[in-house]
Design a protein around this nucleic acid. Structure first.
Length: 255
DNA sequence: ATGGTGGGTTCCCCA
């Protein structure tokens, strides 16, 4: 079974690329972030025609998450506990087979010390609390998505240039490490220890052609899920070509 | 320190 995560940066703008990618890679599950549309604007029928069940949690213009799955999506969870209907749409959970999947689009945070940064910290803490309350770590738990945080300097093309900057700061890394304390492992690091593997390259700096990237899209797995994981693949090729997203898809190969 | 590009919407916001 293949579980994929991809920040598509607008599903409607990316449709041609996403459909071609699905036809090529045939993921069993695809978690998308930044769909940037309302549920009723989501091109559901196209994916259903490709053989997927579809769950969405969208909003106008910004954010929005979706899960496609070849199997039934059960116990779908939209958002965090206590959120009102105007909250940013960043969390979508579902059970697929014996695996509990939580698709996350973590707050970007703009700049360390900003108002948005404070919101990022508060939001990440709320996600961790939700995970601690809701999930039994003896189960197969898979958190995936755009975490907008690097684990350590191996995930950064220029660690000194990014020192304590957004996506790389100590408070963010500490908040990400909190999931480790809950029993969720960085699946990529279970297989690969060397640096230089990235999932996002900034449009603005033309970072992709110089491989100026960061690894911010992750799979965090319980030990039960990790035991079924055969490898993590970053599909860097999907970041190239015409009209790409600024993120590469990441695939967890599960038994 | 700033700005660059790209997406969605709108007379600019967000990444």
């Amino acid at each position: 079974m293949k579980i994929a995560t991809w920040n598509v940066n607008s599903v409607r703008a990316r449709m041609e690329r996403v459909v071609a990618w699905i036809e090529d890679k045939q993921p069993d599950v695809l978690c998308m972030q930044e769909i940037k549309c309302l549920d009723e604007q989501f091109p559901r029928q196209v994916f259903e025609d490709l053989g997927y069940r579809v769950a969405t949690f969208g909003q106008k213009t910004y954010n929005g998450v979706a899960i496609l799955a070849k199997q039934n999506l059960e116990d779908v969870v939209r958002g965090l506990p206590g959120e009102t209907s105007d909250a940013q749409k960043r969390v979508l959970g579902a059970q697929v087979g014996d695996t509990l999947i939580l698709n996350l689009y973590v707050v970007n945070g703009e700049k360390v010390g900003s108002e948005k940064f404070a919101y990022k910290m508060e939001w990440m803490a709320r996600v961790a609390e939700f995970v601690r309350e809701r999930y039994d770590m003896s189960e197969k738990i898979v958190l995936c998505g755009d975490f907008n945080v690097t684990f350590d300097d191996r995930d950064v093309y220029d660690p000194e240039g990014w020192r304590e900057k957004i996506l790389c700061s100590t408070p963010e890394r500490t908040a990400l490490a909190k999931f480790g304390e809950l029993g969720l492992r960085d699946a990529f690091r279970h297989f690969t220890t060397e640096g230089g593997h990235y999932t996002w390259w900034d449009f603005r700096t033309g970072g992709f052609k110089r491989d100026h990237g960061l690894r911010i899209d992750h799979f965090l797995m319980s030990d039960a899920a990790l035991a079924a994981c055969r490898g993590i693949e970053i599909d860097k090729g999907a970041r190239g070509g015409e009209k790409p997203s600024d993120h590469a898809p990441v695939i967890a190969h599960m038994e």
